[in-house]
């Protein structure tokens, strides 16, 4: 049943080619924007180009943002259209529904990550020490993180307008504090503590590990585990928001 839910979600997406195009192309376009932004800088000798640093982090951040938005709105539609209530009267298990959604969007996320990473490497010559496979993996993982948090947040919105407002609440602080603008160890203690409980910080740290080391490090493994744990926790919490019996 998880497969049929996944298939159904993909069929819905198939009927909406414009959304597919947005999912696949937007991160690559934004990456181009970042590239041209730093096109004329002369990097200090011995230091990487800013694009190598920022562009790499973007490969983890964009999929997270896009997938969060797509998922929270799709799930919200399911909640308000009555189809969710109807599904919960059928033998369908909550996990079938959530993992079906997560799977379908993860497939899209993987495609998105492949397009974005390929653009970064082949068109803009992204230069990192580690293997590109790790970059794709982290990229997919942050996308799945966006899916999990989106599924969860859709429970707290009653309109699509509210769902969009969750972006600044849930997503922006993570972008600000993930180490993109200021290195996390240079933040004040409160902000650093906050950034330590945000999953995106670990994804970005993982990317920095890939950039600095040719071989995967144990710190990278730890980062991946933390992000994966957030994904599982997000999905579990989301399943608690699916109530078969309501007032």
């Amino acid at each position: 049943m998880m497969w049929s839910t996944c298939l159904r979600v993909l069929r819905q997406l198939k009927g909406d080619p414009r959304s597919i195009a947005l999912i696949l192309v937007v991160p690559a376009l934004l990456l181009a924007l970042v590239y041209w932004l730093y096109e004329n800088e002369t990097p200090a000798p011995g230091l990487p180009r800013t694009f190598d640093r920022v562009g790499l982090m973007m490969l983890g951040i964009f999929p997270f943002v896009v997938m969060f938005l797509v998922t929270s709105i799709t799930m919200l539609r399911e909640r308000i259209s009555g189809t969710l209530e109807r599904l919960l009267t059928t033998p369908l298990h909550k996990a079938d529904l959530l993992f079906g959604y997560a799977l379908a969007f993860s497939i899209m996320a993987t495609l998105q990550a492949l397009v974005a990473t390929a653009t970064a490497y082949w068109i803009f010559g992204l230069n990192v020490a580690g293997n590109a496979g790790w970059v794709v993996l982290i990229s997919v993982l942050t996308a799945v993180l966006g899916v999990a948090l989106g599924l969860l947040c859709s429970a707290f919105a009653t309109t699509e307008f509210q769902a969009v407002q969750f972006m600044p609440v849930v997503v922006f602080p993570q972008i600000l504090l993930c180490g993109l603008f200021v290195a996390r160890d240079q933040m004040n203690t409160v902000l650093e503590a906050l950034s330590n409980i945000m999953p995106l910080s670990y994804a970005v740290h993982g990317l920095q590990e890939v950039a600095a080391h040719a071989k995967p490090t144990s710190a990278l493994a730890a980062d991946l585990v933390v992000v994966a744990a957030f994904v599982v926790a997000g999905l579990l919490l989301a399943s608690l928001t699916l109530r078969r019996r309501t007032a």
Binding site: R8, R11, G15, D16, S81, T83, R86
Partner: peptide, 8 residues
């Protein structure tokens, strides 16, 4: 209210 997926 008919609860089906309008985009399917």
């Amino acid at each position: 209210a008919a609860s089906v997926y309008p985009d399917l």
